[in-house]
Design a protein around this nucleic acid. Structure first.
Lengths: 245, 245
DNA sequence: CGCGTCGTTGAAGCCGCTCAATAGATGTGG
DNA sequence: CCACATCTATTGAGCGGCTTCAACGACGCG
């Protein structure tokens, strides 16, 4: 047994946005030192979530928003009929929970798809700092605005694209987001299952599987289990821009 | 001819949120007198848009957000392939343009579907007031949060529902929004065309037409041209909650 | 009246779903 | 370590809901 003093309460660990590699993607992006220091005072870091553990559930009171530090968080909504619709997958540096501000209650569910660490940002405190740190207010407006833009894109994908275009769009979006984070844009692991990809895109998982296979036959990608290698990025891009390139 | 002094430059007309019947739906909701007065100072009212006139287009610089005063504004995005996806229909009291904050550029198009009046709220000014009027900042966060919630609902509709459920959901949503505004929840005119309803819901206009006819045959609604009368609200609600009541 | 737009309705075809079988991966317990 | 159960992924076959294509009627407008 290790001595007791090595047991660390992660909730009390001081969060350092300054030293965080995600700063340029996350809330502190473009903020001054002073502002970041104020931010650090309210942000809490809890112990990481294990796969399958929930960050919040529908009906939970809204306490704060969350920034993903590592791992992957799935957010989904439940329809009246009980089936779930995945709203989004959140990568390190991205912020979730913003949709609960209005009602002070979460309507969606947020669950870790792999071991994930995150920061909790109590919203009352954040809102308070916004009132004295104009840059932070602007940054929060921008983050919410970006979320709206992302969802608009998703509406377009769900409403206008066929299954093949949906899957191609999905792969490209994931690829871009990994590149932003310094990972390879061509080789990556899809943490989520085929089931979850299909749910997100509004198609069945069999269709996702078939299209992956087709893309592989056509030399556009190569897939082994959850690992994807994009071989022909241009072909993928051509697929999403409809037709007639 | 009327004398010249009756020609009014509407852009210079003082806007009075205080006297506006939409206050409780719009930006000033729940704000104190002082805050509303500050808000009134920056809000501009231009001459109404005629049917088919644009509030903004994709690529336009972002100057401010807009509050609908009367009429109906359609917002849509263009895919790479050139086809449009309608993102939403905005009724009096609702605010649009929030998705352009991040990039300082509009990615979507906003066009009037009938004669519509609106208020322009320059975002730089609004953001400035937010910094001294905490209630306004909170209200803006809430409005953006609500927009996110709405879009989440729409993702669920597009991703999980069949054509019948989509149309039923659409009718119920419209009905609720009219009721909120003091209009009849059972009798209303659909300003948008079948084409636009279908586009919004991710189905063809023929399908929308067929489902309207089916609903009428089943005694759920009665439709004549653009006029809809909801006869059996419960039946509609049962349709959207999937199955098994 | 003639023309264009919008809405309705029918018929046929296709894309994606449903159902099903199989294989591989993963985990568990004897 | 292997037998067994479970879960995920792949692939095939057939079906069905929605789309596509087409014809027609109802309006509105010059």
């Amino acid at each position: 047994m290790k001595p007791e003093h090595q047991i660390i309460d992660l909730a009390k660990v001081k969060v350092s946005c300054t030293n965080c590699s995600l700063t340029e993607l996350c809330l502190p992006r473009g903020m001054g030192e002073d502002a970041v220091r104020k931010l650090e005072k309210i942000i809490k870091r809890a112990s990481p979530l294990q796969k399958g553990e929930y960050l919040y559930r529908g009906g939970d009171p809204f306490n704060g928003i969350y920034a993903v530090r590592s791992g992957l968080i799935k957010v989904y909504a439940n329809s009246d009929g009980g089936e779930e619709q995945i709203i989004g997958f959140y990568l390190p540096g991205e912020i979730l929970g913003l949709d609960a501000i209005e009602n002070n209650t979460h309507a969606c569910f947020a669950v870790a798809l792999e071991t994930s660490s995150y920061c909790t940002i109590p919203f009352a405190d954040l809102s308070g700092i916004c009132k004295v740190v104009p840059e932070l207010q602007d940054q929060l407006f921008k983050i919410m605005s970006r979320e709206l833009t992302n969802e608009n894109q998703m509406l377009l994908t769900l409403g206008k694209k066929n299954a093949e275009e949906k899957v191609a769009t999905f792969l490209l979006t994931i690829s871009n987001r990994y590149r932003q984070r310094g990972y390879s844009a061509n080789d990556f692991k899809l943490i989520m299952s085929r089931q979850e990809i299909g749910n997100y895109l509004g198609v069945t998982f069999e269709t996702v599987s078939r299209i992956f296979s087709r893309f592989q036959r056509d030399g556009i990608i190569s897939v082994h289990k959850k690992y994807v290698n994009i071989l022909d990025m241009d072909a993928l891009k051509k697929l999403v821009s409809g037709c007639c390139g």
